[in-house]
Each structure stands twice: as C-alpha cells, then as structure tokens.
C-alpha cells in the first residue's frame, strides 16, 4: 500500500464494491458515494490524479471522475 496516494486507495475501495454493476450504474453509484462522503480537497486531489493518469487508479474510478466529477463535484442536495 505504500506509494499509493490515500485518495487512490480509498476510491479503489469504493469502486470495487460496485464493480459487479453494469458500468453506467456503477459510475452513478461511485459518483454518489464520493460526493456524499468525501471532503472537497480529497475530490480535487483525486480529479487531478486521474487527469494526470497516475498509475494504480481503478478504471471505474477513472471513468467516474472523468464523466461525473471532473466538471461538477456533484448534486447539491445529497440526502440518502
């Protein structure tokens, strides 16, 4: 685990839980989770690492970030 940035490891943990879903749903699930529970600086950190194509990033995380989080960090009201 050494050498991997915490946001890369933690986002991978989230993505693995949804990897069984069809990819559209998986992206939705990961995006919802990250925007409900992650502090903005962590999201920014993750976005910049994805944009820099850092190694070790879960492909589902990469896709979620590019499709859903890079521009808009999420909907404003994120109740359950």
């Amino acid at each position: 685990m050494t050498g991997v940035a915490p946001v890369v490891r933690l986002s991978g943990d989230v993505a693995r839980q949804f990897a069984h879903l069809p990819v559209e749903q998986a992206v939705e699930a990961v995006a919802t989770h990250l925007s409900r529970f992650w502090e903005p600086r962590m999201l920014r950190d993750l976005v910049s690492r994805v944009q820099a194509d850092e190694p070790g990033i879960d492909p589902l995380v990469g896709r979620t970030v590019r499709e859903r989080l890079a521009a808009d960090p999420g909907p404003t009201d994120r109740r359950a």
Binding site: M1, P6, L10, Q17, F37
Partner: peptide, 9 residues
C-alpha cells in the same frame, strides 16, 4: 494497517 471500511473508513 491503513485498510478500512469502503463506505466509512
């Protein structure tokens, strides 16, 4: 280790 619950850490 640093491992944690995926949803809540």
């Amino acid at each position: 280790t640093d491992n944690s619950d995926w949803a809540t850490n």
